[in-house]
Simulated scan of single mutants.
Amino acid sequence: MTGTIVDLLLWVCTLGCALIAGLYFAFSTFIMAALGRIPAPAGIAAMQAINAVIQRSLFMPLFFGSTLASLVAVALSLWRWAEPGAAMMLAGGLVYFVGMFVCTVVFNVPLNNRLDAADPQSEAARDTWTRYLRVWTRWNHVRTLASTGAAGLFVLALVLR
């Protein structure tokens, strides 16, 4: 029975990480580039709208739920260290927590907050936007790679079990 619970947890982690990775991938590969091609006030307003909507969407339970599941995976991997796949489970959980969650909280959210406080029509907002596009996207690449890597590590943990 406990093995089934661990397997279910690994599937939840895999799918949660993969869904988050897909969203971040879209932002890294074309959404931010598209927003950067339009006039700054429109790009700022669009990103402000995205930030407002995403906080009230199904993204938030997925974001926090997948983070919690990854931390449970870390704890279970240590508790069941002798079992096959435990090291991959530990690695997946740590990569996801640090590379996705901590990165988001420390880098992307403060940048979002600064952008949300900006008046899209002001000259200062244009400078904020130029920096935001570069720095936010760079940290989003990190989140994309961490989420994708964690999903792969959780798949490997499942295969090894």
Rank of each mutant, 00 (worst) to 15 (best):
T4W: 05
D7F: 10
L8S: 14
G16T: 02
A18L: 15
L19H: 03
G22T: 06
F25G: 06
F25A: 14
F27Q: 03
I31W: 05
L35N: 11
R37P: 02
I38V: 15
P39Q: 13
A42W: 05
G43R: 04
G43M: 05
I44C: 03
A46I: 09
M47T: 06
Q48H: 09
V53D: 11
Q55M: 14
S57K: 14
F59A: 09
L62F: 10
F63H: 15
G65L: 09
S66Y: 06
T67Q: 12
L71E: 10
A73Q: 12
L76C: 08
S77Y: 04
L78A: 06
L78Y: 00
P84D: 14
M88G: 03
G93D: 02
V95F: 05
V98A: 12
G99I: 05
G99R: 04
M100G: 00
C103I: 15
C103Q: 02
V105R: 03
F107A: 09
N108S: 08
V109T: 11
P110W: 10
N112M: 02
N113E: 15
A118S: 13
Q121M: 04
S122A: 15
R126E: 14
T130V: 09
R134T: 12
T137S: 13
W139F: 14
G149S: 01
V155G: 07
A157D: 09
